[in-house]
């Protein structure tokens, strides 16, 4: 069987599956981050340029919880999204909420500025070399799947990200709260007329989107080293993912995220030089053929 796969693909199977797994993990982060961006965009009509910095904050809060308070990975998984989400609520209340009547581009510029500030502060405090974060004891080691060794933590990241995405989809599509949210995305004024506190809903939505980014940051902490720039390069790719998928559908962003991660992984096997740019090239092709994105509405 393995020889058969090798003869078709023309590369050693450990290399192939290793890169596929790496692609799946990157895809998990793309999916979680683009999901948060899409939820925020749906209600606030701004694109959250601070998202990368908030992803990075999630990883740093996990590191601080461990090194300053002795609280481990599982606590971080719970607390970091809450803490970073709370800072998001403050940012929305004090700054972003002042811009809703203006051109949406101002929201982009504001969140870009906030992102620069956050990144700069962390770089001053922690330098740019990166801090180590250990994989929790429960998730160390690897499974022998027969065709490859699967580090348990990496499998966990993919699984947990899938669960998060599914949970977000369920909340938005199947609950009363989600119904309000979708209604407010269509017509906020009308929903407010029915007595729903829309400004509070907007604030909490922003907080939730930010918390999702922070959660991805905690997941990323043991894989990548925790450093102030970890979010920025990732978030630019996520923007391309969002353009490819279109921000109209939740499942669409999840599918696009994972799919592009896998494509990127495969590119690393066959044409390593192009792996950094392949997503951008796909973005260009999608724009030329389906300008609204694969799952977007024009």
């Amino acid at each position: 069987m393995l020889e058969f796969i090798e003869s078709i693909t023309g590369v050693p199977t450990p290399l192939l599956f290793g890169q596929l797994l790496l692609g799946l993990i990157n895809g998990a982060f793309y999916a979680m981050l683009s999901l948060g961006l899409a939820v925020i965009f749906g209600l606030l009509n701004i694109i959250n340029f601070t998202h990368g910095a908030q992803f990075m904050m999630g990883a740093f809060v996990a590191w601080m919880l461990l090194n300053w308070l002795g609280l481990g990975y599982w606590w971080a998984l719970l607390l970091a999204p809450l803490i970073v989400g709370a800072t998001g609520v403050i940012i929305e209340r004090t700054m972003i909420s002042r811009l809703y009547k203006l051109d949406h581009l101002y929201g982009l510029l504001l969140t870009f500025g906030i992102g620069l500030m956050i990144e700069g502060v962390f770089r001053n405090e922690f330098g740019s070399s990166g801090l180590p974060y250990r994989i929790p004891a429960e998730l160390q080691g690897a499974w022998d799947l027969g065709f490859m060794f699967m580090p348990i933590y990496r499998g966990w990241v993919v699984l947990f990200a899938l669960i998060c995405c599914l949970a977000t989809w369920l909340v938005i599509e199947k609950t009363r709260l989600g119904a309000y949210l979708r209604a407010a995305t269509e017509n906020a004024a009308l929903v407010q007329a029915f007595g729903v506190n829309v400004p509070r809903m907007i604030t909490l939505t922003y907080g939730a989107g930010v918390a999702l980014a922070a959660l991805a940051g905690v997941l990323a902490a043991p894989i990548y080293s925790v450093n102030p720039q970890m979010g920025t390069n990732l978030i630019i790719v996520v923007f391309a993912v969002v353009v490819i998928g279109g921000m109209g559908s939740i499942l669409g962003s999840v599918l696009t995220g994972f799919g592009l991660g896998i494509i990127e992984g495969l590119t690393k096997v066959y044409w390593p030089e192009a792996s950094a740019t392949v997503i951008f090239v796909i973005m260009a092709i999608v724009l030329l053929t389906r300008p609204a994105g694969l799952f977007g509405r024009a």
Binding site: L110, G113, M117, E119, G120, R123
Partner: peptide
């Protein structure tokens, strides 16, 4: 050093707001 980034970010925020 990195404070320049912080100051630039702060200017962004101040100008936009």
């Amino acid at each position: 050093g990195a404070w320049v980034t912080v100051i630039q970010g702060a200017i962004f925020v101040a100008v936009v707001l």
